[in-house]
């Protein structure tokens, strides 16, 4: 019934399940595997997770829809999430969102025709000391100005770096190596 698509995740899935005293605890990491494999949470992915941990599909779906980091529909290859909460808002988050809207010519949640870009506003990402900021896939870009953001988009467009934290391999993509760190005094 489940797709062959997740065969590559089998070994990793077993390792994850073995970490927990109760296999239901593996639902979140397994949903991350599905998302990495399919780009978002698919119905076949939900069934695969359900089978792996003996959890009713409805409960897996319930978890997948409760947490905002599981995408219910495809996003761009580079998905920008702009923090909109107070500290970022005070230092210009609206300019960041405004720039992306203009540059991509998209509404939040829409994906560009070439599949590369999408963006949305999200709640506090815990990077208030380096505000305003946004996250591209799993990588933080901090202390943004419109000019700096423009250069970042240019660079991503030219180099197409891997900005995803890979659950499948449990190691970081190249893009995360240069991840800026929070300011510490």
């Amino acid at each position: 019934m489940t797709d062959k698509k997740f065969d590559v995740c089998e070994k990793r899935a077993e390792e994850i399940i073995a970490q927990y005293p109760d296999k239901h605890s593996a639902v979140m990491p397994l949903l991350y595997l599905v998302q990495e494999q399919s780009g978002c949470i698919t119905e076949e992915g939900i069934l695969w997770v359900s089978g792996k941990i003996d959890m009713a599909p409805v409960h897996v779906r319930e978890v997948a829809t409760f947490y905002t980091m599981y995408y219910k529909k495809p996003v761009g290859r580079f998905h920008f999430q702009v923090c909109r909460t107070l500290s970022c808002a005070l230092r210009g988050a609206r300019d960041v969102t405004g720039y992306l809207k203009e540059r991509f010519g998209l509404e939040p949640g829409e994906v560009s025709l070439n599949g590369l870009w999408s963006y949305e506003e999200v709640e506090c990402l815990g990077s208030c000391g380096t505000a305003p900021m946004c996250q591209v896939n799993d990588t933080f870009f901090e202390n943004l100005t419109v000019e700096k953001l423009g250069r970042i988009v240019d660079r991503i467009e030219a180099k197409k770096p891997n900005l995803k934290l890979s659950v499948l391999r449990d190691e970081m993509g190249d893009g995360l190596q240069g991840n800026p760190k929070s300011e510490v005094i």
């Binding site: 500290s87 005070l90 230092r91 208030c128 000391g129 929070s182």
Partner: peptide, 13 residues
């Protein structure tokens, strides 16, 4: 203390 907002030196102290 994580300081943010309209200050000259945001950061963790």
């Amino acid at each position: 203390i994580s300081a943010s907002g309209h200050i000259n030196k945001p950061g963790v102290y």
